[in-house]
Every structure is written in structure tokens, then in C-alpha cells.
Amino acid sequence: MARQWEFVQTAGSFKSCMAAYFTLIVALCAVTFSTVSHARTLIIEGLSEAPLKWMVDGDPRGIDIDIMTEVLNDMGITDYRFQLVDNGRRLLHNAQTGSSDIVLTLSQNSERSQYLNYPEEAHLLLDWRFAVRAEDRDRITFNDFSDLARHRVGAAAEYSYTDTFWQSGLDIEVVAKNDLLIPMLLENRFDVVPVNYLSTLYETLRNGQREKIAFIYPPLRRAPYYNVFSKASDYPDKDAFLKRYDQIISTMRNDGRLASIFQDYLGPDGLDWWQSQYQN
């Protein structure tokens, strides 16, 4: 009986040791997986364009930066670096070669899809809208291009806007640079100008002209923009990253974090913009 009891004790100790050993193995595997998954610095690139992304004394700022930082924090990724490059050709070249891992805020087309992995979730819907002087907000409307036929319309050379805009039959006066449009609108040289809504909104907030202009809804053009992963990147577990990314962006849209980021940079207009994207 003593030997049998000793055997039972030995067997129990063995089982306890094996359970502890198994737990240790699982823990080590988890640590190893985490280490492999985040084995190097994640390189995130974009073009400098406020309020989406820009540098202040070497520190990245902007809507894109805050959204991606929030995503990475939720994923538990701390080893990452934002880099801003000087032109779009270099930006796309780095993504094609795998010199960068993620590119911030790109629209989708078939050519880019050959070397970029797009998530399901667009974090931004970027607009081109018509801007008018504030006092004309109720006088000038846009549901069809014929609504603008009696007004002086300005546009910037080499901007595509939409083919329909250029073929609308409107008497469009073309200026050399996009940044001339708002000043010429306020000088009463134009009545209506098509502008990038987000950048124009931010710039007029900064220079104190926001109350002088109004934006006509609906947009002239609206397109989804994505944070995309380079197919050539050797960063581990890209598919898992994109799946988790989609989950987090969806959650941020629903829990108010996206709206809060927009408001941080655009004030009350940020909430209006969020509502126009996700609630209309």
C-alpha cells in the first residue's frame, strides 16, 4: 500500500510538472510570436500635406498620424517610425521596392493594387467641394452644373476635378495655381471655385478666413482613401495586421475616436465632416 501511495504521489507530481512545463512552453511561444511579429521597426511613409500629416521640429503631426498611432497602440506595436517624403513618385517607388511598409492615405486604382495591399476600411473620404463667399451660401446651390451657369466659375490648371466638370459647358476661367482660387473668390473675381475641402478648410481656419467662405454640399467629387501595405515589405504577418487594422478602424468609427481626431484639427467643422462621411 505504501508503494502504491508513493506511485500515486509520483504520478501526481509528474502531471503537475508536465502541466507547468506546458504552460511555460505556451508562454514562451507567445513571447516568441510577439517578438517575431514585431521583429523590426515598422516604416510608415506619406507626403507632407496638412492637416493630414506634416512635421513640426521633427515630430509628426496630423489626422493621419493620430489615426495610425491609435491603431498601433491598440495592436500593442511600439516600434514604428513615420517618414515624410518629398514627392509622390518617390513615395510609390519605396512602396514598390519594400523600402517602406505602410503608405498613408492613397486612393485605390488597378495599377497601385498590383503592388499594394488595401484594407477593407477607408479611414477617410476626401472631398472636392465648391466654395462660395459666406454671404452667397443661400444664393448659390449645386445639384446640377446648370445651377452654376449664371455664376463666374474659377478653376486651377492641371487639376482633374472630374471630366464632367470640364465638359459641363460652364464658362470656366482657369488660373495657374490652386492657391489663387480662394483669394480671387474673396476679391469677388469669382463666385464659385472647386477646392479640396479638407485642406482648404484647415488653411482658412489657420489664416482667419473660415467665416468668409462657405462650402456647398453635396461634393463635386468624393473618394475613399486608405492606409495601405506594401506587398514587397518583409514585415511579418501582414495579413493578420490588415485584418486587425480593419477591426480597429471600424471600432474607432463607432466609438467616436475618429470624430474626436477630426475635431482636434478642424473644430466644429471636424464633426460636420465626420457626419457627412458616415451618417449621410
Rank of each mutant, 00 (worst) to 15 (best):
A2I: 13
R3I: 12
W5V: 15
E6L: 14
V8N: 13
M18V: 15
A19H: 04
V26F: 06
V26A: 11
V26Q: 10
L28T: 07
A30E: 12
T32W: 14
S37Q: 09
A39L: 04
T41K: 10
G46T: 03
E49L: 12
V56D: 15
I63D: 00
I63Q: 02
I65S: 04
M68L: 15
L72P: 12
D74K: 15
I77P: 12
Y80S: 03
F82Q: 03
D86T: 10
N87D: 15
N94K: 12
S99K: 04
L106H: 04
R112W: 04
R112K: 15
Q114M: 08
Q114V: 09
N117E: 12
N117C: 02
N117V: 01
E120C: 02
R129G: 05
V132C: 06
D138T: 10
F142H: 01
N143F: 03
N143G: 12
R150V: 06
G154P: 13
A155K: 06
S168V: 05
V174L: 08
L181K: 03
L185C: 02
L185E: 00
E187Q: 15
S199P: 08
S199H: 09
T200F: 04
L205E: 06
R206K: 09
E211Q: 11
A214W: 05
I216D: 02
R222G: 07
F229H: 00
S230P: 04
S230Q: 02
K231D: 11
S233P: 01
S233V: 05
D237M: 11
K238N: 05
K238R: 08
I249N: 09
S250C: 08
T251W: 06
D272V: 06
D272K: 07
Q275W: 02
N280T: 13
